[in-house]
Amino acid sequence: MHIHAYEKIWLAFAIVLILLLLGSVTYGAVGPGVAMVADSEGQIDATALDEDERFAEPRVEQVGENHYAAYVVAYQFGFEPDPIVVPANSRVTLHVTSRDVIHGFEVVGTNANTMVVPGEVSEITVEVGEPQEYGLLCNEYCGAGHHAMEGKLHVVPREEFESSDGGESA
């Protein structure tokens, strides 16, 4: 089969492009460690969150050296706890569930973004940096007050975290 020289060139371009796309996704997974929202968490009873040891009292607690877990409940129309207070320069695992309908959980302007489904626990782990205030919002239409459903994620200096409620429950 005869292939024109130019056609060989643009076939090579196409292959390079595919390798570039696959290569950068691989780099993202291996280098910065980008992960997906896993389905590793089991199901829970959305109507009985007050009987669940993690979500009866939504909070932030220390689970390891420099590793914190935030248990967050989304509801019509807000997030609990609000604000979510975490210490700076730490690793935070967010466990988010809903007690009514499907919500979204998005830390505005960041990659921390997941759906929140009643009966399921969405788990995402992020590394927070310097003290900062992030906004939180629901990005799945959840009812008449959806547009007003928001919260805050406060990344505070470690000393401030230790002396706050978040520190006490650790």
């Binding site: 492009l17 570039l20 950068s24 996704v25 980008v34 830390v107 590394e127």
Partner: peptide
């Protein structure tokens, strides 16, 4: 255009943002 757009979207806009999900 595709290469420039991909580098911008993935490396700058996506990986450059805060709170990359790592687990």
């Amino acid at each position: 255009i595709l290469v420039i757009a991909w580098v911008y979207i993935y490396y700058i806009e996506f990986l450059g943002r805060d709170l990359v999900v790592v687990g």
